[in-house]
């Protein structure tokens, strides 16, 4: 039971990391709280569902296509709306309402387009084998999902630390003003970050039918809240801290489910709360507050 719980927690945790990382990237670069994060994830999930049901495409393939499409959509959203948003007194907070509006629109359109009935992809679509790890059987869909999550996260790492635009992105995360004064095109970097952020959300979406049960147009709000906990536990504004946050979140929720299921929902928030109080910048964060 213990080993089963730990391994499930790690597998689920990797997926959770992927779920939060896009939200954190956008926050890190733009200081925007993307309240529609879960709704973009939901779109990704429906994309995978339709690709699988109508064309028999594997969710892994849908994931690749969606990443490309979503980068374009994200950049588009950025250029269409964000420069205007930045002119207000407190863009960070105004972005909340902005994304709340986007979230309403996405949900409304999704209900019209997909109806309210829950949908699922057969759990065996990512493989039906049962892997034996340390004498315990794990369903292949979890293992494959975790693996895909790890690959995508690794790609984010490569992007941030081994590409030129990635350096620029990290510079913008550090300080927009300094980055701008050293000749970085902040708008371009931010637009790409927005695109990648949404793409990562939809990538997690393609895997969600295997980890989060059936998909519905209104699944987004809860996922946004969960993603918040994950990125805060890791560290807000530090995309790679999210990996740690995701693993802790995954492990703690699986432990609760195994041993004290009736309080399973409380722990992630308790964890988040304690971390906020004792290490406000997250487990991997630097000190941010001065007064």
């Amino acid at each position: 039971m213990l080993t089963y719980t730990i391994i499930s927690g790690l597998l689920f945790g990797l997926f959770c990391s992927l779920m939060g990382i896009g939200l954190n990237l956008i926050f890190g670069v733009m200081r925007f709280v993307n309240l529609a994060h879960g709704d973009f994830l939901m779109l990704g999930a429906f994309g995978a569902y339709f690709a699988y049901t109508f064309w028999g495409l594997s969710p892994a393939l849908a994931l690749v296509v969606e990443i490309i499409v979503m980068i374009a959509i994200g950049a588009l959203i950025y250029y269409a709306f964000v420069p205007r948003l930045l002119r207000s007194r407190d863009p960070e907070m105004l972005s909340l309402i902005f994304f709340f509006g986007i979230s309403q629109i996405i949900q409304a359109i999704a209900v019209i387009a997909f109806s309210n009935n829950p949908r699922s992809i057969v759990w065996s679509a990512l493989g039906s084998a049962n892997y034996q790890v340390l004498g315990q059987g794990f369903q292949e869909s979890w293992v494959v999902s975790a693996l895909i999550s790890a690959i995508v996260i690794a790609l984010v790492y490569v992007y941030l630390y081994h590409t030129k635009i990635g350096y620029a992105t990290r510079a913008v995360m550090g300080s927009q003003e300094e980055a701008a004064s050293s000749g970085i095109n902040v708008h371009r970097v931010s637009a790409i970050a927005m695109g990648i952020g949404l793409a990562l959300a939809s990538a997690a979406g393609t895997l969600s039918p295997f980890l989060l049960g059936s998909i519905t147009p209104n699944m987004g709000s809860d996922i946004t809240t969960t993603s918040f906990s994950i990125i805060i536990i890791g560290s807000l504004g530090n995309p790679l801290g999210t990996v740690l946050g995701g693993l802790i979140y995954g492990l703690s929720s699986m432990f609760m489910q195994s041993y004290v299921p009736s309080w399973a929902n409380l722990v992630p928030y308790l964890l988040l709360f304690l971390i906020l109080l004792f290490k406000p910048s997250g487990l991997l964060g630097k000190v941010v507050r001065h007064a």
Partner: peptide
Amino acid sequence: NNSVPTSTSNYPVLVHAIMS
């Protein structure tokens, strides 16, 4: 005999606990 939050959407670990 256990209750879980209504928002629970993943069950492998719970099923495992039930099986045991």
